[in-house]
């Protein structure tokens, strides 16, 4: 059995003084694909932000262990260097900085060494081919004027280049048409190594058809209220969240 990559123990977190996570427990094993589902406003995106260390969110209680180390007090970039990656629902635009320049700077920052130019270019080409991205993409300014699909692909390209240990995909399926979703999901699957864990935040089942989760957790009211295998998604699709909530809360 694989070891635990991420253990969240009784985490409570506030945003603007309002408690969103109310004692959340979650364990993600190394190499595991773990999906988190739940109704709107249940705290799914908050969870990603808290794991990543967004200073906008305050952890008031509990521990977040990454490879056994409590990372609650680490800065965002320090967490990135440990191998945590967040794919954003709507990533920020950075005018004037090309995709190429950005990814190279980021890669050098995360790995703490300079990848030789040629090797970098070769690696970029390989990953961009997988994502069905045209070469001119490299010279465009990061996310500026990108369509929804292009933004998502740009996020996955970054993930591919940075090769993290924990990938959090925050609603990677929103704003993607079926073909783009398939390309993105299949690329993630191909890129996934045995040691890479993936946390998928989603409303929909479709992406779970491509990226079969080992575990599905249901997040509601700031807690994980139910855990199951991939069949849980089908069940949710039929019954909706209400029945689970009723079951849990009763």
């Amino acid at each position: 059995m694989k070891d635990n990559l991420l253990e969240i123990k009784n985490v409570k977190a506030d945003v603007d003084g309002k408690e969103i996570l109310k004692g959340l427990n979650l364990t993600i094993k190394r190499g595991e694909i773990h999906a988190i589902m739940g109704p709107n406003g249940s705290g799914k995106s908050t969870l990603c932000n808290v794991i990543m260390g967004n200073p906008h969110y305050t952890v008031t209680d509990g521990e977040i262990l990454f490879e056994g180390e409590n990372i609650v007090n680490l800065k965002v970039n320090e967490r990135a260097k440990k191998g945590i990656f967040l794919s954003f629902q709507s990533p920020e635009e950075i005018p004037g900085i090309t995709v190429d320049n950005f990814i190279r700077t980021s890669l050098n920052a995360v790995t703490n060494k300079n990848m030789p130019m040629l090797q970098f270019a070769k690696s970029m080409k390989e990953k961009m081919d997988m994502l069905d991205m045209k070469p001119e993409y490299r010279t465009r300014y990061l996310n500026v004027g990108f369509s929804g699909g292009e933004k998502k692909k740009s996020e996955i390209l970054q993930m591919a280049m940075l090769n993290p240990k924990l990938v959090m995909l925050d609603e990677i399926d929103s704003g993607l048409d079926i073909d783009a979703l398939r390309v993105v999901a299949e690329t993630v699957r191909k890129l996934k190594t045995e040691d890479m864990s993936i946390l998928i935040i989603t409303h929909y089942n479709r992406i779970l058809d491509y990226l079969e989760p080992d575990v599905i957790s249901v997040l509601a009211h700031g807690r994980i209220v139910k855990e199951g295998d991939k069949n849980l998604a089908k069940e949710l699709e039929k019954t909706g969240y209400e029945s689970i909530l009723d079951e849990v809360l009763s």
Binding site: H56, P91, E92, I94, F102, S106, V110
Partner: peptide, 9 residues
Amino acid sequence: FYLMTRGLS
């Protein structure tokens, strides 16, 4: 925040 998630201080 976005840039810091990519390892930049």
